[in-house]
Design a protein around this nucleic acid. Structure first.
Lengths: 130, 130
DNA sequence: ATAATAATAGTAATCATTATTGTTAATTGC
DNA sequence: GCAATTAACAATAATGATTACTATTATTAT
């Protein structure tokens, strides 16, 4: 990965907020300083920055992918009313803790990524839908 | 929600497997018994069954949405090699447990849904990206 | 500086999912 | 039971987010 001013601006944009923005927001933010940047460039660099561990993604069932420059392990709270995504550190029986401070907790969804024992041994394989 | 044979067949299809299928898989499965069903019907009913709590969705960064007829609280393991999604019950420092039984754990992503304190009070609002 | 190639803008294409529309079928009231 | 009502449906178009393509530009190594 060679150096690029635009990629730097994109990472800076994600780092500038704790709102867990989507690609469109980042696009708008970066255009403030780099007016001519294209949306494709934003998407491509967000993908590459994620692949290089410079940022992380948050998948929700609320529409588009959100990005987070804080790569330390933590949970995210998604408000189904306003769509905001916020950080949750130190979770362990988190639902009750949240309720004590005014949240309404509907669902806790944990997704773990890695390789299943089968794939940890061999290469290739199907898509798990056989 | 009125009764419908097709919706029943769709829910049966999701219940018939623990593979956490996507909409396309469910479509193929249901066509075995209901050849004329349309893909839109599958999508609409999966959405409605989710809204009615008859099933739950699993969002990953691996492409399409997956469905799970088991609505009890549990985590999901996504294999980034083969795309399989599997259930993980009784997680509490789950990463280490998984490693002991042959998994490679890359990431644990927890997403919690509900209403933030602001929205738990008022109605409406923005999308959290202002 | 020049050659090699990653990065980019602009745009087209893709993929999953949702909306629309005319029709069919399940429920409701008589 | 039978018409009236309206959810559910098939077929298809549309959407929205994201990715791919192509010609051009910028970065880096020699």
């Amino acid at each position: 990965m060679r150096h690029s001013k635009k990629r730097e601006a994109i990472l800076d944009a994600v780092r500038s907020t704790r709102s867990h923005p989507d690609a469109e927001w980042v696009y708008g933010k970066v255009r403030e300083t780099v007016p001519g940047i294209s949306l494709g460039t934003v998407y491509r660099n967000l993908r590459e920055l994620d692949a290089n561990g410079e940022l992380t993604t948050v998948e929700t069932d609320m529409g588009s992918m959100r990005f987070d420059a804080d790569t330390s392990p933590h949970a995210h709270f998604v408000c189904r009313e306003c769509g905001s995504v916020s950080d949750l550190f130190g979770y362990g029986d988190i639902a009750d803790k949240l309720r004590h401070v005014g949240y309404e907790v509907d669902e806790v969804k944990t997704v773990i990524y890695g390789k299943c024992p089968d794939c940890a041994r061999k290469r290739g394989g199907d898509n798990g839908l056989s």
